[in-house]
């Protein structure tokens, strides 16, 4: 076989090589940006290392970081906080997202403006939104305390960021505000793909609006719902900036999620081996949760 024939990518037996060649840069880039750091992180998690340097010799293998992690109250607290956040924020994001999608799916005057307003929180940069919310919930001079007192809901100001339940609630509110537009946009896309004939047939059969929602809209949206649920849960799971800017994980670790704990251990306390162990566990939990949700969803997801 001549050299030119070997490199002839137009030959039917070599055609798939072209595909691999075209994919190679992307695969290499992903490998460099995602896969390599994951391997480094896993490797670090099995070393007793404070500040990691790639040019330093590898420290002896140890499972100390994982032993410390599983014996740490802070770790289990972070898991519980993350679980609560994922559950509450995902639920309310779906409730609000679906409601607003159903609303703006109807034809009415100002529909375009309503759609814009629904999507607006998604477009606002996260940190800017969080800073605005931090001022709104400021314990001494914030808008929320003023509104609550004027409405007679409370007698005295609430220390939003000094009370564990209050600060957790504030984090949830901001996350839901920031996260529901994504659900709404996805749901709206899903709603518009449902054939109008389904509803017309249901109306002929005398189905009420509630029955149409339960028996047509929700089942038809299930494929979109499943994918959106996984994406929203993963977003809440890994979100860092909202909690970091609002509460920094406090008070009393009431809002310390796994991502905040990882950052604190790595860059606050310079315990990079330990922080890598938390990162590895977070990754495993994320993969398992996503896999479970995908496998339980309908086949057409």
């Amino acid at each position: 076989m001549s050299r030119s024939a070997f490199l002839d990518l137009a030959r039917p037996s070599r055609r798939h090589w072209l595909g691999y060649l075209l994919l190679a840069p992307a695969v290499l880039l992903i490998g460099l940006i995602i896969v390599y750091p994951v391997f480094v992180s896993v490797d670090l998690s099995f070393q007793n290392v404070n500040i990691a340097r790639l040019d330093q010799p590898r420290r002896p293998f140890t499972t100390l970081n994982y032993e410390r992690l599983f014996a740490s109250e802070d770790f289990w607290n972070a898991c519980w906080v993350t679980f609560k956040l994922v559950t509450i924020v995902s639920f309310f994001c779906f409730l609000l997202g679906l409601s607003t999608a159903l609303l703006v799916n109807n034809r009415f005057k100002g529909q375009a403006l309503a759609r814009l307003l629904v999507a607006l929180p998604w477009a606002v940069p996260e940190v800017i939104a969080v800073v605005i919310f931090a001022w709104m919930f400021d314990s001494s001079f914030g808008l929320m305390n003023w509104v609550f007192i004027k409405l007679g809901l409370v007698d005295t100001t609430i220390n939003w960021f000094s009370s564990p339940p209050a600060s957790f609630a504030v984090v949830c509110v901001v996350m839901v505000w920031k996260g529901y537009p994504f659900v709404s946009i996805m749901m709206l896309a899903g709603l518009q793909s449902i054939p109008e004939d389904f509803y017309n047939a249901a109306r002929v059969d005398g189905a009420s609006a509630w029955q149409r929602l339960i028996n047509i809209t929700i089942p038809s949206l299930m494929p979109v719902l499943g994918v959106t649920l996984v994406l929203v849960m993963l977003w809440v799971f890994r979100d860092f900036s909202i909690i970091y800017v609002l509460t920094g994980g406090g008070p009393l670790k009431a809002t310390q999620s796994l991502s905040i704990m990882t950052y604190e251990q790595a860059f606050g306390f310079f315990k990079m081996g330990y922080a890598s162990a938390i990162g590895v566990i977070t990754l495993i939990v994320c993969v398992i949760a996503s896999r479970l949700m995908i496998s339980r969803a309908p086949d057409n997801i």
């Binding site: 000094s162 564990p164 008070p251 009393l252 670790k253 306390f269 310079f270």
Partner: peptide, 19 residues
């Protein structure tokens, strides 16, 4: 060497005392 961790611990225990 453990200043950051120490300061965080003091802050949290003080917050606990107040809350």
């Amino acid at each position: 060497l453990a200043f950051n961790e120490f300061a965080k611990m003091i802050m949290e225990e003080s917050q606990r005392m107040i809350i």
